[in-house]
């Protein structure tokens, strides 16, 4: 529930809201200045850090939901059994939790990686002049530079790249699809 609340507002609006939080006289800088932790406002907005914050913020639910789905089906008794058999916390994580939730990890990584390649408004709004990503390149070629063929070529290449990754995802699902198989290894 907590995770899906952000979906109630458009992610574009939420990206604009991030500007208010990150800007030089925004929430974070005002708080840090008032408490005396910093003397100069941090240059948060229009930096690569801001792009990262924006991307992670926008796409985090897409990572959590598949992971949650994978972990909800996971039987905690398996972890208890691991502890009973003398495994350390790290060993339980490595040999029980990670293999069982691997399909969730792969699904989440796909659902974050692919949109992150194409999101153009987050670097557009939060990034500086030097943080141009593929989405911005394509958008600029179509709208600003008016070079449709180049933009089309770039988006076809991106589509091809995403297609390859999706294909790899389906192959991995076929391989790691059944969580119980991973347990027996």
């Amino acid at each position: 529930m907590l995770v899906v609340i952000p979906f109630w507002t458009s992610s574009l609006v939420r990206t604009y809201a991030l500007i208010i939080v990150l800007k030089a006289n925004g929430l974070i800088n005002t708080l840090l200045l008032e408490t005396g932790l910093i003397q100069q406002p941090l240059p948060l907005l229009y930096s690569n850090t801001a792009v990262f914050i924006g991307l992670v913020y926008t796409l985090l639910p897409f990572m959590i939901l598949p992971l949650y789905a994978a972990m909800e089906k996971f039987d905690p008794a398996l972890m208890e059994a691991g502890y009973d058999l003398g495994a350390s916390r790290l060993q339980v994580l490595r040999h029980i939790l990670l293999p069982v939730t691997l399909p969730g990890i792969i699904a989440g990584a796909t659902m974050v990686f692919l949109p992150a390649l194409g999101l153009f408004y987050v670097p557009d709004l939060l990034g500086g002049a030097r943080s141009m990503l593929l989405g911005n390149l394509i958008k600029n070629q179509f709208l600003a530079a008016r070079n449709w063929p180049l933009g089309a070529a770039a988006s076809m290449t991106l589509t091809l790249l995403m297609g390859l990754l999706l294909w790899a995802y389906f192959v991995s699902v076929r391989r790691y699809g059944d969580p119980r198989e991973a347990l027996t290894r």
């Binding site: 792009v51 990262f52 992670v56 796409l59 992971l67 949650y68 990890i105 974050v112 990686f113 390649l117």
Partner: peptide, 23 residues
């Protein structure tokens, strides 16, 4: 690189969170 970094951060943050949420 940005997409990979975003995925890594989301995984690092989301994994423990999803675990706690499920439990």
């Amino acid at each position: 690189a940005y997409a990979a970094g975003t995925t890594a951060i989301c995984l690092a943050v989301g994994y423990p969170f999803a675990f706690l949420l499920a439990r």
